[in-house]
Amino acid sequence: MFTGIVEELGTIAEVTDQGDAIRLTIEASTVLDGTVLGDSISVNGCCLTVAELGEGRWTADLMQETLDKTSLRGAAPGDRVNLERAVTVDKRLGGHIVQGHVDGVGEIVSRSPSEHWEVVEVSLPAHLARYLVDKGSITVDGVSLTVVEAGESSFTVSLIPETLARTTLGSRRPGDLVNLEADVIAKHVEKLLGAHASTHLPAHVQKDS
């Protein structure tokens, strides 16, 4: 589990194509502190397992499912990526509960700079729209953000200077793809309410359905 508070920007050093998978080697420093083989690190919001450790770098294996469902399918050497180690129980939950399980891929639609912040619009896959509400939480490329306006096909977020400087969201441009993860609490509530509603339907309706 993660919090969506990016610890550092890493750099993709190598991408090894294995046909139905790739090996991703990333240069980093902060996230390697205390990290051992088998630990989890979020890369642009995607939870990956440390398979190899080297001096100032680490390697993860990405299977086809990950390539199909995330923007990491387009990873290339030199790309900057948002990195965060899995949260420990003694840490503050500075963002929100983030699983590192990407729900869909969005696209930067527009950027509207202001003097002290920047409003960014991101396209939204249709199946995720129901989980977003104004002032709710969304994870964009591993960054915990507050939704400004939630629409049916897109949403907006306001990025402060700290976020612009310390994450890849400062350099994303219209057309760039980003990984999205909806608030897991919203997904659990939807499932629980759905089960509750079905058990309280009249008997003849339950039978017909």
Rank of each mutant, 00 (worst) to 15 (best):
E84T: 06
L37Y: 06
E107A: 06
K69Q: 13
A28K: 05
T146S: 10
K191H: 14
V205A: 14
D103H: 04
V205K: 13
V87C: 14
E152S: 11
D176S: 05
L48Y: 02
N179W: 07
Y131M: 04
K135Q: 08
N82Q: 06
I5L: 14
C46M: 11
L145H: 02
V119I: 15
A86N: 07
G74V: 05
L145R: 02
D17Q: 03
Q18A: 11
V98T: 07
S144M: 05
H200F: 09
F2G: 01
L124I: 09
G194W: 01
T25V: 00
L67Q: 05
Q206G: 04
G54C: 09
D39Y: 06
E149Q: 08
H127I: 00
Q99L: 12
E115K: 11
L164E: 01
V6R: 04
A165V: 10
L83N: 10
C47K: 02
D61W: 08
V148E: 12
R173K: 12
Q206F: 08
A165S: 15
E65H: 06
A51S: 15
V89H: 13
E8V: 03
I185H: 05
I138L: 08
T25P: 00
S110P: 09
C46V: 13
V81K: 00
T167L: 04
I160L: 13
H200S: 03
E115L: 14
D183C: 09
A197C: 10
A21R: 06
H96R: 07
D20F: 07
L177I: 03
D141N: 14
L93E: 11
A76H: 14
L177Y: 11
M1L: 09
L53P: 01
A195P: 01
T146N: 07
S114R: 14
M1F: 10
T168P: 03
E149A: 07
L93Y: 11
G106A: 11
I185E: 07
V81D: 03
T16Q: 12
G151F: 10
S110L: 06
M63P: 05
V105M: 03
I5S: 08
E121I: 10
L124R: 05
